[in-house]
């Protein structure tokens, strides 16, 4: 009996020779226990070493293997060939990002946006180590924990049509991280994030399509974070304009 096979239709982009992406079809052995990333690695190792893509952990942790699989933003290390076989699998780079080569996108714009949101704990004054840890109640941890699981895979950006139309939008993951630190009882830096969050390209550019939360492999729920940031931003504005002496609640 012939070995079962599966066909992957893979997007290729090879500058400077190619200025627009083309596609290349690879038919390879079908193994039901393989994920799409295994198939891409098989192609790279056995068929065509020139194919470029990113990956690292192979276990949904590093966030580097995001691609469009049959038009859906997925981590390729988390989707099995058996979910598609015997149909052909269309593999494309993450949508809404510039493409460097084949399936590799340029994420430098995202990294810039991430930095301006200041996704780290900011203290007005650090307490001396001799005074011990910054303790939190379980409720205080609950307030931000779900939003701290982001692996920067950018699936949410690929699924967001607003980002597709307006690439200056700070976007789901960066805003969700801003919310996560604003919610952290140890953080005192929300005032330093408001100008970015409240900017025209911040939360207010989101019109709540909600797909970012649907595709997120870590259930971060960036759509909820952004809508709650809108409420917080409005409260912050009221406090700063109507009660100029108002402090962070």
């Amino acid at each position: 009996m012939p070995e079962p096979t599966i066909t992957l239709n893979v997007s290729r982009y090879r500058p400077p020779d190619e200025r627009v992406p083309t596609s290349q079809v690879y038919t390879i052995p079908y193994r039901p226990d393989w994920v799409v990333l295994d198939a891409l690695n098989y192609i790279k190792d056995q068929v065509d070493g020139s194919l470029s893509f990113r990956w690292s952990c192979r276990m949904g942790v590093c966030g580097s293997c995001g691609m469009m699989i049959n038009g859906e933003a997925k981590l390729t290390c988390s989707v099995f060939l058996r979910d598609y076989h015997p149909r052909e699998i269309l593999v494309e780079p993450l949508e809404n990002f510039p493409v460097i080569k084949d399936l590799v996108i340029d994420m430098s714009d995202f990294l810039d946006k991430l930095k301006i949101v200041k996704p780290w704990i900011i203290r007005e004054t650090e307490k001396p180590t001799s005074e011990g840890e910054y303790l939190q109640t379980p409720e205080e941890m609950d307030a931000y924990m779900g939003f701290s699981a982001c692996i920067n895979c950018l699936l949410c950006y690929a699924a967001c049509p607003i980002f597709g139309v307006e690439t200056d939008f700070i976007g789901p993951a960066a805003l969700a991280l801003g919310y996560r630190y604003n919610q952290d009882s140890r953080d005192e830096g929300s005032n330093m994030r408001w100008n970015v969050i409240n900017d025209h390209h911040g939360t207010w550019q989101c019109t709540f399509v909600g797909e970012c939360s649907v595709v997120c492999p870590k259930d971060v729920d960036p759509a909820a974070a952004i809508q709650r940031l809108k409420v917080d931003t409005a409260k912050h504005w009221i406090r700063s304009v109507l009660l100029p002496w108002g402090k962070r609640a």
């Binding site: 627009v20 038009g71 510039p98 493409v99 460097i100 340029d106 049509p161 597709g164 139309v165 909600g210």
Partner: peptide, 18 residues
């Protein structure tokens, strides 16, 4: 050397949720 994809005007027809 980057390829900049363009969002088609019909993007909202691509997915039921859109």
């Amino acid at each position: 050397l980057l390829y900049y994809p363009r969002m088609p005007a019909t993007w909202w027809l691509r997915k039921w949720s859109y």
